[in-house]
Simulated scan of single mutants.
Amino acid sequence: MAGVARARLAEERKAWRKDKPFGFHARPEQNEDGSVNIMKWKCYIPGKANTDWDGGFYPLTMEFSEDYPAKPPKCKFPGGFFHPNIYPSGTVCLSILNEDEGWKPSITVKQILLGIQELLDTPNDKSPAQSDAYVCFTQRLNDYRKAVRKQSLQYPPPN
Rank of each mutant, 00 (worst) to 15 (best):
N37G: 02
P69Q: 01
N85C: 02
Q151C: 00
K40E: 09
N124H: 11
T122W: 01
P59Q: 04
G80K: 12
N142D: 15
M62L: 15
R6L: 12
R149L: 02
M1C: 02
R8E: 08
V4M: 14
F22Y: 03
N85A: 04
V92A: 05
Q154R: 11
A133K: 13
D19K: 13
K40I: 07
Q151Y: 01
A133P: 15
G47C: 03
V148N: 08
G47M: 10
Y58P: 11
K48Q: 12
V36Y: 00
K74A: 12
E11M: 12
K42I: 08
F64V: 08
T91L: 12
R27D: 08
D67C: 01
P69R: 01
F64Y: 14
P69W: 03
A133M: 10
C75G: 12
N50H: 10
F64H: 07
A49P: 01
K40W: 01
P28L: 06
E32H: 02
H25M: 07
E66F: 07
F64D: 03
C75W: 10
T51G: 09
G34T: 10
N31C: 12
Q117P: 02
M62H: 06
I45Q: 04
K104T: 04
I112L: 10
I86N: 06
E12M: 07
T138M: 14
G56E: 09
K71Q: 12
L120C: 00
G23R: 10
G3K: 13
P46H: 06
S127K: 14
T122G: 04
E11Y: 13
Y58N: 06
A2R: 13
W41E: 02
F64P: 01
